[in-house]
Nucleic acid binder design. Sequence first.
DNA 1: ACACTACCTGG
DNA 2: CAGGTAGTG
Length: 388
Amino acid sequence: MSNWIKLSLGVPNIKGRQLVLSNTLVNGQCFNWYALREHDYVGVLGQYLIRIQQDMKDCDIQFRYHTHKKYKDEGDEDDQVHSLLLDYFQMNEVNLEDLYTTWSNDKHFASIGPCIPGLRILRQDPWECTMSFLVSQNNNIKRITGLMLKIRSSYGERIGDLDTVLDEDEEFEDFTVSEFYTFPTLDQLSKAKEADFRALGLGYRAKYMEASCKIIQKKGGEDWIRNLRLDLNSKKKENSKEEENDDEEELNRKTQDETPKKSQLTLENLESIRAQLVELKGVGNKVADCISLFSLNCLNSVPVDTHVAQIAKRVYGMSESNAKNYPKVVDLFYQKFGTYCGWAHSVLFAAELPQYKPLLETKKKGKRKEKDLKLSEDPGQKKIKILK
DNA sequence: ACACTACCTGG
DNA sequence: CAGGTAGTG
């Protein structure tokens, strides 16, 4: 059995303001994590079966993992998985607490942010992300997660059983997933025809899957999508002297905030990425923006779905939100939240999901009376309400 | 160029 | 209806 390893975020995670797993892993941005119980998840990242959990008293996070023997490297595998997770959570690039503070200039965000702390955008694998959001269209999170699971177990490679990340005396009776698989490569997934995808339950999306796989093959395979990813650190080369001596987290962070190294986040680049993704079958604006935000470092992509369109209408007073003024909604979010508007949007989006309604309700009650609001700022009380 | 609809499936 | 898109008038 594997050992537990503490995840060192590099910054204090007070009250989960940098990272809360329950707000990050199951909010609809990814579909590869399953809750064993609250704040305790299993899922697959690359070739690793990972279990990760958070102690909601101090917000510390620990993980353990398992991988198939054929993948075993020598040496620092613990370090590799640790680095993998830090990259996945984008811990080295983004100080989420600072962003929440900035975003709270917007009144609507200010009312929601404290209820949904530590919601980070994950840096996912572009290929897997593309397939996931192809499946996601006109569909719900629960079913998407189930369908992706079927795709893995049908066409991926088996990594191992659940019990490789459980203690001997542990059991989770209602938990139905017992074995875990890698996400299939393009070659592996290309063995499936439309009928096969339909048999898995993908419905009319089956046709899109087969067609898109073929298109991706023609364009150069998974690497074609992976190469669409923006390199936000490219500017570092100019400051290489500074970077090398920069071991201290705070200094590093400061430098990055001051020199927004966002030279890649131009409108042209974003348009180009979207244009290329839309060439796939079953990928329109919304899905393309999901892919670019969740896997291609496009911090300012704003996928406009029914919920986001509703926010634009209900909260920000946009008259009509339909497919036609998609760009207008995107622009609205950019005007409100700036470079990281894709990140901000995800918090507001989460607030629209039924699962988050209870958290927001407690906040509303406190808001009724201004006097009570200050009292409810009591840390202990807040933690219970928000993070329970 | 726009608006409208069919489309798998499950709650 | 659910985090839409392609196809059609």
